[in-house]
Design a binder for these strands. Structure first.
Lengths: 122, 122
DNA sequence: GTAATATATGAATAACTGTTCATACAATCA
DNA sequence: TGATTGTATGAACAGTTATTCATATATTAC
């Protein structure tokens, strides 16, 4: 369906490689998926939240323990946990006055480690 | 090393489960790693950038093609490509007047797909 | 040289984010 | 009941971000 023999020389108007653009467009994720995906990554885009995920990677912890662990205020941690909760990266269970947080599933652990590999492997 | 028989009842001061907190603290990634990791995820935390990654997932594209593909201005795309470049999520090669962008490596593809799985699997 | 094309970038602006502070809610204990 | 402890949340503030617009740089064609 390509009308030009020359593979790629012009981007302007109808002279750009339309086949390649159409191919990319067909694979392109839709706007809603892009937004959801971006939100998931956004939940992991803050050092404090990444450290929370890291702290929860082995065992659940309650809010106060997380605050002590990270050396931050209970309020700051609680606000960030809300973000992580809303993005379904963590789940929680209540036990008396405490609320114990844990990673939502193994998927989160994988995502975290995949990112870590990229960072450590430079 | 645990001094309390009761597993978890108090979070206040020295009465919280210190063993669990220490354990979490030992596993906790350091501040620099947390910042770098957060930056990597942040590069993927915008719908436009996610769509760019998606568009590049099969073949390289030049800036103008990306703009056409996403229906956005050249300037907006160029600004976002800069972010992706700085985070080493994309690489580029110059060919004449054109600059062709591609995913930096398979790692990026994996990271993208891992996130996509999480989103689609609800 | 001039014109056209492809890309990059600084400034400006509106929208968003993370923390602190104060306070509210909830559960336990005296 | 009132006091204490654990957690959540609204407001405010400083800092950041994504887009647009105008413009600069760079390469090619004439």
């Amino acid at each position: 369906m390509k009308t030009k023999a020359e593979p790629r020389d012009k981007c302007e108007g109808s002279d750009m490689d339309e086949a390649r653009v159409r191919g990319a467009q067909e694979r392109l994720i839709d706007g809603l998926t892009a937004t959801r995906l971006a939100q998931t990554f956004k939940a992991l885009s803050d050092p404090t939240r990444v450290r929370i995920i890291s702290a929860l990677s082995h065992d659940e912890l309650c809010v106060h323990e997380l605050a002590a662990c990270l050396g931050m205020s209970q309020s700051a941690i609680s606000h960030q946990l809300r973000t992580l909760r809303e993005m379904r990266l963590v789940r929680f269970r209540k036990e008396g006055r405490h609320v114990y947080y844990a990673l939502d599933d193994e998927h989160i652990h994988d995502l975290f480690n995949q990112g870590l590999e990229h960072v450590e492997h430079d």
